[in-house]
Design a protein around this nucleic acid. Structure first.
Lengths: 144, 144
DNA sequence: GCACTAATCGGAACCATTCCCAGTTTGTGC
DNA sequence: GCACAAACTGGGAATGGTTCCGATTAGTGC
């Protein structure tokens, strides 16, 4: 999915890639910002946003989906899926069987040229599970 | 999925349900707002947001996922899936085979109590397909 | 009608993200 | 190393979706 056109690898871009490469979390833009500032204290938030966007377009990182939530970024670009905690919003990788089954699922694409899909699970992470709170989001089908 | 506790069905809530019930589009909050204002010209945006949220919690409508995008709402709460145009952002329903296969897919939930999943396809709608523009988003796996 | 609660309005506040622009850095040809 | 153009950056302002808040209105039980 690289964009053909290679981009110049500046200090700030290297720092962003390094930050995303060495965390297994899926940080938001401002989390990336504060981590990058440990290496490059003068970097600006605008630069972080601009470069996250650019690196995602290049296919070097990945942007994760979650409606109305802050955008999150992932340094791993190979094919894997995620689960989001409905309580605290953290995201983890999740191991899934043969999700490529999905490729054969579409019956009627309504005239769309289908490129891909987002598959994101939702649930409650270990930290918040079983403490009595009922977090009934949208259940099966189309999570929040 | 209803919340047990029934809510009072006020004019503005009825109007929102009616608007969502008679469109097959998946309007954003401010599209709902302007449609509701045709019936109830004095309704405020805050009320629309509050009630969309409330109705979604009640399971009477559904909130649709799409990272960094405006939230969209759907009056159909039964189990179906969506496709989003990468160019113009519109969302349509899409017909999918036995997506309940997904229920058996999870191998390692990383300690999460898994509640459900979001499955949203991405592509280019009829209107923008085949006009030479290359819209290479994130392809297969984890769309934007 | 009265008291009480829930819902609403309108606008301000909030916050993630994008835009703008002057200044700096980088790459290229010499 | 020097000059030049293009790309990049920092800082801050602007934008736009969403939430919050105080005052007002509507609904409910008595």
């Amino acid at each position: 999915m690289s964009n053909g056109q290679a981009i110049r690898m500046t200090e700030s871009r290297k720092a962003i890639l390094s930050v995303l490469g060495r965390t297994r979390a899926h940080p938001t833009a401002d989390e990336v910002y504060s981590m990058v500032r440990e290496d490059l204290p003068k970097v600006s938030l605008g630069t972080v946003y601009r470069n996250l966007d650019l690196l995602a377009k290049q296919g070097l990182i990945r942007t994760l989906a979650s409606a109305g939530e802050q955008r999150r970024y992932d340094g791993m670009v190979d094919d894997h899926h995620h689960i989001r905690c409905e309580v605290c919003g953290r995201m983890d990788d999740i191991e899934v069987g043969n999700a490529e089954l999905l490729d054969e699922l579409i019956i009627d694409g309504r005239g769309y040229d289908v490129h891909g899909y987002t598959l994101c699970f939702s649930g409650v992470c270990r930290e918040y599970a079983g403490n009595g709170k009922s977090h009934e989001q949208n259940g099966k089908g189309q999570g929040e």
